[in-house]
Each structure stands twice: as C-alpha cells, then as structure tokens.
Computed example of a mutant assay.
Amino acid sequence: MRDLRSLETVIWVVRLGGFRAAAAKLNTTQSAISARIGQLEKELGVRIFQRGPRVTLTAEGTALLRYAEQMVDLREEMLRAIADPAAMRGLLRIGVSETLAHTLLPRLVERIGAAHPGIVLDMVVDITPALRQSLAAGHIDVAMLAGTVEDPRVVNQPLCSYPLGWLASPSLGLPERPLRLAELTRWPILSFSHDTEVSAELRRCFAEAGGPGVRLWGSTSIATMAELAQAGVCISVMQVVAAEREIAAGTLRILEVADVALPAVDFHVSYLRKPDSHLSATIAGLARELAGPPG
C-alpha cells in the first residue's frame, strides 16, 4: 500500500458505521471510499468488510484494524515528536466549562496564538454534561470539563482541581464564626445544575443536618452565581477561584460552615483518539502544561 490513507479509511468506516459517513468525514465521495477499500483488499488478497444492510468487518478485517490503529497512532506520535509547532494548521473546536473559561482559557488561547498561529479556534462554553455529549458525537475536538468522559474512544488527562466555597454578600450580616447549615436556610442556596455531583452532595448535607427546609437553586452560569450572591439574593456554592476579584473587592466573603467538607472539583482535558487527533493531543498537552499539577 502506498500510504496510510487506505488504513485511515478503514478506521473511519468502522468508527462511523458505514461508507457514507466515512466519506462525509473525509470530505470525499462514497464511491471513492469504496475504491480505496477495494484497492486495499486487492493488495492484501482478503475481504476486509462483509457488505450488507450494515457494513461489518470480516475476521481478516478485524485483524487489519488492530494493526491500522497502531500504525496511525505511531504516525501521530512521530508528528508530536518532530513536527514544527508553527507549521500546525487547521480548525480546532474547543468546548470548555465556565470555570475554566474564566481561569485557564485566556492563557491557553494566548499561548496557542503565539505558538501555533496557523490554528483557527472555534470555542464554546457549556455545562459538563453537554460537553461530554458534544465530544462523543464529534461536534467538538477537545473538551475541558469537570470529571471525565467515560467512553473507550476518549483520552482523559487531569488538568487541575479547584475547591468549592460558600460565598455570600457581607450585607447579609452573617457572623464571623463557623456557621451551621440551619443558619443558612433563610436564603436560597445557589449552586450548579441539579444533575451535577455538587448539587447531589448539597442535598445530602442538608438532609443529614435536618432543620428547616432548604431552597436549593441551580445554575449553569458561574457569573450568575457570583452576581446573585453579591446582590444578597442567595448564598452561592461555587469555585472560589472564579470569584477572586469579588472577594478582593469586598463584595463577596467566604463563609466558614461547620461540619461540611465540600469536595473539590477536578477538571480534565479530553479528546477522541482518532486518526487525525494529533492537533487535539498537542493542545491538550499545552492545556496541561499551563494548568500545572492538579491541586
């Protein structure tokens, strides 16, 4: 075989479930995909795919796929080791959680612009569940999010860990001492959406504490949490790092709440392992370098 293009075609047909989807991904025609596969089958003297209502691998095709993935992965490793960073080009779609949009993303974008001027960025800020779905569906190339993406096709690498805190406006007049949960239920408690681990932990803490009913509000926006807390509308539970300016300005204060140990939020950078993941892997490595050791 003359190059790796035919092997990449096999990989995409398998991963996307058919010749038509692979053709759309590789920006070619379905007949061109069939021709590549036919030529490869002729060179190897075996059938790679069993044609039918659904394209499936033959036993020989299954063996070939394993070697094809290894060869393409080795090429990606070679490119990462020797390629000139300034020569890297292409569109990179990044999905990022709002906390990292306020902390890591500005530095990452600046570094990408300086080191890889040929990369065009398309960025979206969203909640972690949506970012997981977008990455798995191939709508974004790199996700920086809370937790990991549980998918065997995905590479997850640790980025950083940010502690949570109870933040409130000084205008609420709460005493400067450790507070009990029951003392906070006068106000709504605003944190992340109800389908997140943080929200589940808060529900558990208040249920164990008993006392008056608590109003747990949810939001997908860190900025909204900070703004409503500053206005005295609620007490917000969020990453302290995202409210450093407000705390320094005295418009928010950190509350000490007795007998509650809020978990830190661990962030990861994730990308799909695929034939053209060299760019994603490079930017993921850059994000890890800028984030520093987790914790």
Rank of each mutant, 00 (worst) to 15 (best):
R177S: 01
L216M: 15
D195A: 07
C234M: 08
L179I: 00
T196V: 08
P178Y: 09
C205F: 15
G213Y: 11
L216A: 07
A226V: 13
E227W: 10
L172W: 04
W217T: 02
S219M: 06
A200M: 11
T224G: 04
S221C: 04
R180T: 00
D195Y: 10
V237I: 15
I222E: 05
A226K: 05
A168D: 03
P188Q: 11
A242T: 13
I222H: 04
A242Q: 02
F192G: 06
G210P: 06
L228F: 15
S236Y: 14
A200I: 09
L172I: 04
E176D: 15
L179C: 00
E227Q: 14
A209R: 06
I222K: 00
A168W: 02
P212W: 03
A209Q: 06
I222Q: 03
S236Q: 07
T220Q: 08
F192L: 09
E201Q: 13
G211M: 03
P188C: 08
V240M: 11
S199L: 07
E197V: 14
S191M: 07
L216I: 14
P188V: 10
H194K: 09
I189T: 08
V241W: 04
A223V: 05
P175R: 03
M225V: 04
S193F: 05
G173R: 05
A200G: 11
I235E: 01
W187V: 02
S191N: 07
Q230S: 10
V198P: 02
P212D: 08
P188I: 10
P170G: 06
W217S: 07
I189V: 12
T224N: 09
T185V: 15
R177M: 03
P178D: 13
A209W: 11
P170E: 07
R203P: 05
C234S: 13
A229R: 05
A182C: 03
L228S: 10
T220K: 06
T224V: 12
P170K: 09
L184A: 01
S171T: 15
L179E: 00
L167Y: 13
R177P: 01
G211P: 03
L167R: 05
P212T: 03
W187M: 08
C205A: 15
E176W: 07
A200P: 03
A207K: 14
E183R: 00
L184P: 01
T185L: 02
Q230M: 13
V198H: 09
A182S: 13
P212C: 03
I235L: 05
S221A: 08
R204M: 13
L190R: 06
S169K: 02
G211A: 08
P170M: 12
L190Q: 11
S193C: 10
A229W: 11
V237R: 02
S199W: 15
R180D: 01
R203Y: 15
V233H: 14
A242D: 03
E227G: 04
V198Q: 11
R186F: 08
